[in-house]
Design a protein around this nucleic acid. Sequence first.
DNA 1: GCGATGTTTCGACCACGATCGAAGCATCGA
DNA 2: TCGATGCTTCGATCGTGGTCGAAACATCGC
Lengths: 224, 224
Amino acid sequence: MREGPDIARIASLVGDPARANMLNALMGGTALTASELALEAGVSLPTASSHLSKLMEGGLLTLASQGRHRYYGLASAQVAGMIEAIIGVAEAVGPKRVRPGPRDAAMRVARVCYDHLAGEQAVAMLDRLFDRKLLLREDSEIRLSSSGAAHFSALGIDIQARARRPVCRACLDWSVRRSHLAGTLGAAILDKIIAEKWARREKESRAVVFSPGGKREFERVFLA
Amino acid sequence: MREGPDIARIASLVGDPARANMLNALMGGTALTASELALEAGVSLPTASSHLSKLMEGGLLTLASQGRHRYYGLASAQVAGMIEAIIGVAEAVGPKRVRPGPRDAAMRVARVCYDHLAGEQAVAMLDRLFDRKLLLREDSEIRLSSSGAAHFSALGIDIQARARRPVCRACLDWSVRRSHLAGTLGAAILDKIIAEKWARREKESRAVVFSPGGKREFERVFLA
DNA sequence: GCGATGTTTCGACCACGATCGAAGCATCGA
DNA sequence: TCGATGCTTCGATCGTGGTCGAAACATCGC
């Protein structure tokens, strides 16, 4: 019972499912807003806010205020390392893999992440957009190339860079552990997918289900 | 959102003060009985028993029954590494360490981490072993070189690589924030240090205290 | 200024889990 | 066989902390 660093305090911060989901979402290194984290964690905005202030007070997060957006990120690589260590143990002791379930499987393939597409389809799409040089990696940023601007414009997706919100942003995918496309462009693409009826949003879920024809169209346009 | 290894489950196991104290006590590497752990955690026996079964179910502990005694120990070096990582974060964000205190200072210099040596001495040793090419970095792994195998063999440390547990592993040190050597080789070196009486283990603590002569010997052999 | 959007605070509710005493098992030494 | 010791299970209590709706606060575009 002797004193030491308060390890229980830190561990219990990670020990709540909602907070664990938030931290997991932040493991990609990109800072996220409170709303995005609320969606990732599957809790309401007030609840998420409460969790975030606890994580802040615990020193696990940093906060960058930009106007009315507040971007939360992991405080340090040390914190990320700790979470990796916990993930490692969880994987080692929990080979459970309880039957994925159909909704779960659908979620892995494609789902909504805030206002853009996530899941295997989205990750594949981002890869392909890089391959075709429609998007360019710049350090940790993503930029729209001139050919990309023309390409999306031809698809009826016009991005006016007016918004304070970045046009392109990488967003880490929990199921694939790689990035997919967020930002206004990501949102616009999801809008198009829904508008063209290539896919529909599953009720009461984040899953996005493509129709057979819609899937072909999507792949022709974005995965070609 | 959810899916993936259940990190919240693992973290919440560590997140209870009583359980955290137990795990901390077990970081010394010696298995302890339920009564000892109850005392260490400052809770009654029934409470401790309940905590222990939770830790067992979570896969964090191993149990060795010997007659009417039941010895609990950490399940693996991986679990120990996770706890070290959490301690590191707790130290970093922790409140204004009030005067380190002598025991704390001794812990920084050298201490037991599960079954191997940690602390400044251990970090310095790993650095030196790399310099002398007795160990080789390979990506994020550590490998024993042929000259290293010969060297340790000459010291009476024979490592049979058959074990499923890796021979060499890096383990992050909370006090120095750099790696020290874990794995069977790390354990064997600690065994030698104790067997040669170069150092003794402080009672009721993880600190390892070198004798003046032992320190010289250790430095001659491992830090030369 | 205005309404719209993003975020936090407040208040109230409720459940989970930590806790302990007493009783039940299990194993030891005779 | 017996009592003693080490540990776990049972049952009941209780407080901490997660949760959300409503409202307040902050900042933007206009």
